[in-house]
């Protein structure tokens, strides 16, 4: 196990290095460079040269990359070009808000998807399974912002149950104390997850229902609810864990759209605004944090899976 974790950690570091490499060189392709973005179209060539020199943009790219990497290792993401703030502070302010949004959405999705998936698996091939599958596919196929719009029309305008505007508070406490504002962004973000999770769980439960040990237990007279609880769901737990680990980057992608739609002050909105203004250190910082979260998430998911399910321990990384 220690060896396994060691190898996976090493892999994780390599992956994060490649992420930084990709994004760094991609961002350096921005036309006119960050100088144009910050100083504006009216800036003279002299001003641009001065700016580039001050920021070290006139150095060869590999040197710049080395310097950037050196800063990153010490936890320094540099300063935002637009906001007069450090990137680390901006991200530290926004990340918890996005985590609240995606965390609540994931929780809601699991609460709905697990019973749904099990129900469909048990009743597979019947009318109820087909209808729910259909609903699932439609949910998956609906663009997040279209769904969000429909939800706003129905649950904020026709039936004024929730607010169409996300909580705008500066602190987490303020955000959490506005459930009417939080409801629609969370539901919107959860919808796609519900579709994917329940589909995944359905096939996992069907697979497990066909296992020999289930057949044996059934032959020995175990009741169906007992079978489901003790033999099937416990085995499907590994599927849920790996699914959540795998879903982290998708959830961040969804947050980008949901935050934009409801004007929720999280990482997605930060990233989008930064992209509009070529705020290069912020873009890099956000992507770095998401990549680290994703890599750590899938690492933890794999380790958890090995702890839960002894069968997976045989698999080498």
């Amino acid at each position: 196990m220690t060896r396994y974790v060691g190898v996976r950690l090493l892999q994780a570091i390599v992956v994060i290095f490649i992420v930084v490499l990709i994004v760094f060189f991609l961002l350096h392709r921005i036309p006119g460079g960050p100088a144009r973005g910050i100083l504006g179209q009216q800036a003279t060539q002299q001003q641009i040269d001065d700016f580039n020199h001050a920021q070290g943009f006139d150095l060869p790219l590999p040197v710049q990359f080395g310097r950037y990497l050196g800063q990153m290792v010490t936890g320094d993401f540099g300063d935002s070009y637009v906001e007069n703030q450090r990137v680390g502070d901006l991200v530290a302010d926004r990340l918890p808000k996005t985590l609240v949004l995606t965390g609540l959405a994931t929780l809601l999705a699991l609460l709905v998807a697990v019973p749904l998936g099990v129900f469909q698996a048990v009743r597979r091939g019947r009318a109820s399974d087909h209808v729910l599958s259909m609903v699932n596919f439609v949910l998956y196929s609906t663009p997040v912002f279209f769904l969000g719009f429909v939800l706003i029309i129905v649950f904020a305008q026709r039936i004024p149950l929730f607010s169409a505007q996300a909580p705008q508070g500066g602190t987490l406490v303020e955000i959490l104390s506005d459930p009417r504002g939080l409801a629609l962004p969370v539901i919107t973000a959860a919808a796609g997850m519900i579709a994917v999770f329940s589909r995944y769980l359905r096939s996992s439960v069907i697979d497990n229902l066909h296992e020999d040990f289930v057949r044996t237990a059934r032959a020995k007279g175990a009741s169906e609810p007992y079978l489901l609880r003790k033999h099937v769901l416990r085995n499907s737990l590994t599927a849920i864990v790996s699914m959540i680990g795998y879903y982290i980057p998708v959830a961040f992608g969804g947050a980008l759209v949901v935050e934009q739609m409801f004007n929720y002050p999280g990482m997605g909105l930060l990233f989008w605004n930064a992209a509009q203004r070529s705020d290069f250190p912020v873009l890099l910082g956000v992507v770095f944090v998401i990549a680290v979260a994703t890599v750590l998430g899938s690492l933890l998911a794999d380790i958890a899976q090995r702890l839960i399910d002894p069968r997976t321990r045989k698999v080498t990384p």
Binding site: Q11, V14, V19, L26, V287
Partner: peptide, 21 residues
Amino acid sequence: RVVDAGIAIPGLFLLVVAATL
């Protein structure tokens, strides 16, 4: 590992960056 790195960056984020390029 290159694939892992690509998956760790959500596609939408890359598309947003690409659109500025």
